[in-house]
C-alpha cells in the first residue's frame, strides 16, 4: 500500500514539476535560451494571488489574477531583458536570465518582506479512501489539472496554426521567417504560455502547502528545469516524462527512511546519470551543429 501511495504522491508532485518543466522546455525550444527566471515567475504569481485573495477572497479569482500577472510579467521580461540580446552570445542571455531571477527574488523580498505569507484560502482540505489508501483531494485536483494541461497543450501544438508555427520556429527560425511567421510574436506567445503554466503550477503548490515566500519558485524551478533536461530539453513530451519521473523518484526516495535526507542529491544525480547515458535526454533529439 505504501508503494501505491508513493506512486500517487509522486505522480501528483511530478505533474507540478512537469507543468513547470513545460515552460522551460518550450522557451528553450523556441527562443533557444534557458529562462532561469521561470521559477521566480511562479513566485511572483504567488504574490499576485496573495493580493487577489486579500482583495477579492475567492481562490478562482486568485488563480485568474495569478495567470494574468504572470503572463504580463513573462512577456515584459522577454521584451525588455531577453529580446535586446537576440543574436548575442548564448552566455550573455543566460547570465541575464540569472540576473533576472535574482532581481525578482530580491524585489519580492523588499516589497513583501521575508516572513512567509499564508494563503490558507487556497487549501483544499479533506481526502477520500480507496480501500485503505488515503488520497487527498488536493492530490486528485493536481492530477486532473496535470492531465488537462498536458492534453490541451499537445492539441494546441499539433492542431493549431500558432502551434505549428511554434514548432517551425523551434526547428529553423530563418525558414520560419520565410514562411511569413513573425518569429518575435511567436517567441512572445511562448513566454506567455510558459508563464501562464507557471501560475497554474504555483497555484497547485500553494494549494498543498500554503506558505509563500520569495524563494517559493527557486527549488521547484531548479528541479523542474532538471526534469526538462532529463526528459530532453526542447521536447514537450520529454518535459512531461521528465517531470513525472522526477516526482516519482522524489516520492520514493522520501518514503525510504535511509534515503529521505538525501532526496535532493538523488534527484540531481539522475540528471548526471541521464546526461552520461543519453546526453540529449530521454526523449530529446540531438541538435545538429550548424557551421
Amino acid at each position: 500500500m505504501n508503494f501505491i501511495a508513493a506512486i500517487i504522491n509522486g505522480l501528483s508532485s511530478g505533474g507540478t514539476y512537469a507543468i513547470i518543466a513545460l515552460g522551460y522546455t518550450m522557451v528553450y525550444g523556441i527562443a533557444k535560451m534557458l529562462n532561469f527566471a521561470h521559477g521566480d515567475i511562479i513566485m511572483m504569481g504567488g504574490y499576485a494571488m496573495y493580493i487577489a485573495l486579500s482583495l477579492a477572497g475567492h481562490p478562482i479569482l486568485a488563480l485568474v489574477a495569478g495567470i494574468v500577472f504572470c503572463v504580463l510579467l513573462g512577456v515584459a521580461i522577454e521584451r525588455y531583458a531577453y529580446k535586446p540580446l537576440r543574436g548575442a552570445a548564448p552566455l550573455a542571455v543566460l547570465i541575464t536570465a540569472i540576473g533576472m531571477s535574482y532581481l525578482l527574488q530580491s524585489l519580492a523580498q523588499i516589497i513583501f518582506g521575508s516572513a512567509p505569507k499564508m494563503l490558507v484560502k487556497l487549501q483544499v482540505p479533506g481526502f477520500f479512501m480507496i480501500g485503505s489508501l488515503r488520497v487527498d483531494y488536493s492530490t486528485l485536483i493536481t492530477l486532473i489539472v496535470t492531465v488537462v494541461v498536458m492534453t490541451a497543450l499537445t492539441v494546441f501544438i499539433k492542431k493549431s496554426k500558432p502551434g505549428r508555427a511554434m514548432v517551425a520556429v523551434s526547428e529553423d527560425r530563418d525558414a520560419a521567417l520565410l514562411m511569413g511567421i513573425n518569429t518575435n510574436a511567436i517567441i512572445a506567445i511562448t513566454f506567455a504560455i510558459g508563464s501562464a503554466l507557471a501560475a497554474v503550477a504555483g497555484y497547485l503548490m500553494l494549494m498543498k502547502a500554503p506558505s509563500l515566500s520569495n524563494t517559493l519558485g527557486a527549488m521547484p524551478g531548479i528541479k523542474a528545469f532538471t526534469a526538462a533536461v532529463i526528459g530532453g530539453i526542447g521536447s514537450i513530451p520529454g518535459a512531461m516524462v521528465g517531470g513525472i519521473l522526477l516526482g516519482v523518484v522524489e516520492s520514493f526516495s522520501y518514503s525510504i527512511p535511509a534515503l529521505a535526507p538525501f532526496t535532493e542529491a538523488v534527484e540531481f544525480s539522475i540528471l548526471i546519470v541521464v546526461l552520461l547515458v543519453k546526453p540529449s535526454g530521454i526523449l530529446g533529439k540531438m541538435r545538429r551543429e550548424k557551421v
Partner: peptide
Amino acid sequence: LFYAVILI
C-alpha cells in the same frame, strides 16, 4: 537587487 540590476 542592486547587483541584479547592474548584472542585467
